[in-house]
Design a binder for these strands. Structure first.
Lengths: 249, 249
DNA sequence: CGAACCCTTGACAGAAATCAACTAAGGTGG
DNA sequence: CCACCTTAGTTGATTTCTGTCAAGGGTTCG
């Protein structure tokens, strides 16, 4: 860990409220590292050994089964992932790979668990992080089960806009294929859904830029709902949000 | 709370490891109640006020959006629900209704949060419960995204059998329509999937009884996977398992 | 400049939802 | 105890949605 980034790490949602001495103890054991794009950070099924927290860049969480693959989340700073596996000392349910160059804090699970037991403030922070994570996954599941492909895309675009400060124009944070996988559809279906939305309030401007031309029309289609898409106009962060990603609820 | 059930409550996964004095403090504020079948316990969108723990009976967690409705979970003893909303003091994401006569422990969120801050053992128990819950929802999402309707049903039946001690014959814990909704399909599709599985290892014996006639054939179809269907041969409990339900990971 | 790779588009196939009718089972009240 | 009514489940016909396969166009990067 570079001395310069210690304050940044200290201020992460997970560590912000913990006692100084707990942080100092924990800090002895964790370290930050840079990873190149496309680097495999962990594989589903492996026993939990280290908690990961993204300081910079972006990390893809994905999972495979029988040759099929799906995106579980894209984690951006200051998101953490696989906290649940660490707490339970259980195998990872997903694999993780850097999408771009990324800087990640690695915290050994054993030390983490030991501090949880000693510092109630930290334990509470962990519980809050986990709770936020549950709520995100539950909302994502509701999204998958209660909306069709086109509605999911419309809702995603509205949310993305909101996270960019209700901007009418914004850049998608991930490739189309990753977005498709996250939204539970094939790239082809995403492409067609995007096209059909061009008649309902959006315009594509280049490969990844989106302009919202008719917010009301889009909203009629998406039927945005705080209990699915997440709360309030002022997002805590940007990008796809998912399990283990952000404390936001 | 009846004096006789105090030991039972004390031994719940969430309370088992907490300090005596914390439990005593908390016990002043919680109470157990009986509810008739079909009783609405809470509604999505309402602010979190009480944690619910099921001592007896069964509770349906479901959610609505735009006239569509889907089952999120069926909670059976000794499962809890909406712990995450309580910890974050956020609105419920789902509604809850008793499926049958049920006995439920109600714990005011405020007191719960206050004890979390005071008792690290309890905070750890909460973190573990939440972690188990996350893992369940993540597995459920993987199930929805990586398997088709028939495979989801096949995997569900195998898991159900496993939870009944690898019994070849068992009774479904919920109505077909509820199961369909949980598995992310319509009752019609469930009915047809069930029928098509009769050529691949199962037999229906009456309305809700299932016999597994060819476990290997069923397994070839379902491709059971610990990272989706949950761990080991010895289940912690039975029935549908879901968000906020069981500590099992 | 060329080779990957990503995205799009079209044609088609398959999966699942919808609509509607029918059957069976459970509960109620006569 | 039986008839009726309600509700759950099944089945069939059909539509809609989504995935698959294949080809083409555009970008990016070496």
């Amino acid at each position: 860990m570079r001395p310069s980034e210690r304050p940044e790490i200290r201020d992460l949602p997970l560590f912000r409220t913990m006692r100084d001495d707990s942080f100092d103890t924990l800090a002895k054991d964790f370290f930050a590292r840079d990873f190149p794009p496309g680097f495999d950070l962990l594989r589903q099924g492996d026993p939990a050994r280290v908690l990961h927290i993204v300081l910079d860049g972006a990390v893809l969480l994905y999972t495979r089964h029988r040759g099929r693959e799906t995106t579980t989340a894209v984690v951006e700073p200051p998101g953490s992932f696989i906290l649940a596996a660490c707490i339970r000392d259980a195998p990872y349910l997903v694999s993780a790979r850097t999408l771009e160059r990324a800087r990640v804090v690695l915290v050994p699970c054993e030390q983490l668990r030991s501090i949880v037991r000693q510092d109630p403030d930290f334990a509470l922070a962990v519980a809050e992080e986990l709770s936020g994570c549950i709520r995100q996954v539950v909302r994502h599941t509701k999204n998958l089960k209660l909306r069709n492909a086109q509605e999911r895309l419309a809702a995603y675009l509205l949310r993305e806009s909101r996270l960019c400060g209700d901007a009418d124009r914004f850049i998608l944070p991930v490739e189309m294929r990753t977005l498709a996988s996250f939204l539970g559809m094939t790239p082809e279906t995403l492409s067609r859904s995007m096209r059909s939305l061009e008649a309902a309030g959006i315009a594509k401007e280049g490969a990844r830029a989106i302009r919202i031309t008719d917010r009301d029309a889009l909203a009629r289609l998406a039927a945005p709902d705080a209990l699915i898409d997440g709360p309030g106009p002022v997002g805590t962060s940007r990008g796809i949000d998912l399990p283990g990603v952000r404390a936001a609820s």
